[in-house]
Nucleic acid binder design. Structure first.
Lengths: 139, 139
DNA sequence: TTATAGTTAGGGATGGGCTAACTAATTATT
DNA sequence: AATAATTAGTTAGCCCATCCCTAACTATAA
């Protein structure tokens, strides 16, 4: 029982390490080494809201509009976002992630997917089904 | 196949969410809400080196000694570390984690253990063995 | 004319780092 | 044994980046 637990801890430690390696290589592929947690969070908010405006982003993140302007300029200089002005209202700009911004915003999720791909490659179809059945029971 | 992958992603997403919840409750149990990533890293270094000195900590983290002095004072005020002067050499202080400091340094690891305990509780002995056998194959 | 979207200017708190100069303790040298 | 040199940690004073703000502005729309 204790032995099983230790065994599982080692196995999951290894899976977590694999996932970390994947996200690290995603970040280094983006050639952005000095991005901050806050900046990544802004990218995630932009990623999860289509055609978001400065004002809306300020609202969601509970910051002032000048704060957003500054942050967007920074993320723009890093090549993570682009903006397009609204054709119907010249005051409004919509924010979009660039390919690089999207990679960063989704790095963790993509790292998980890569680990699962490796997992699928290492197992046969029956084993995968079995794994799914077992892990589905965990509550 | 694609279906299996999506299924596994959902399952692992859920496990990761569970682990995050565990580490969040560990941190809130420590009643430290404004600790930083850097501070946690210092705690981890202290945790992994027995009877570490200021100078050694400066060496390992590649910082100056004044930086270490300041950081240690901060972590001390947070109740995360204690120090004891060396009985044979009055210049030297050894650093130790308090119970709280240790909880923070090991939060991630303990969160993983809690998830695995839940996993073990949800499965019977045979299923656990099967799970171990399957996941051991992942490389 | 008034309201709204975003910008600019200027400021400030906080975190986390530094060097130089110091004190106290230990070790080496004369 | 006395003095000099070294070492551990501290203090003072500084710097810089991040991330936030308010007030005042411009341009556009209602």
């Amino acid at each position: 029982m204790t032995d099983q637990k230790e065994h599982l801890v080692l196995i999951f430690d290894n899976l977590i390490r694999m996932k970390n390696e994947c996200s690290c290589s995603i970040f280094s592929a983006c050639e952005i080494s000095d991005i901050t947690v806050k900046q990544i969070n802004y990218l995630k908010v932009i990623d999860s809201h289509d055609e978001i405006t400065f004002s809306r982003l300020a609202e969601i993140t509970r910051n002032s509009k000048p704060t957003i302007t500054e942050m967007i300029h920074k993320l723009d200089r890093m090549g993570c976002i682009s903006r397009k002005s609204c054709p119907h209202d010249g005051r409004i700009s919509y924010l979009y992630l660039t390919e690089r911004g999207e990679m960063i915003a989704r790095a963790e999720q993509n790292a998980l997917q890569q680990v699962i791909e490796r997992l699928i490659d290492s197992l046969d179809c029956h084993e995968i089904d079995l794994l799914i059945e077992i892990l589905k029971k965990v509550r």
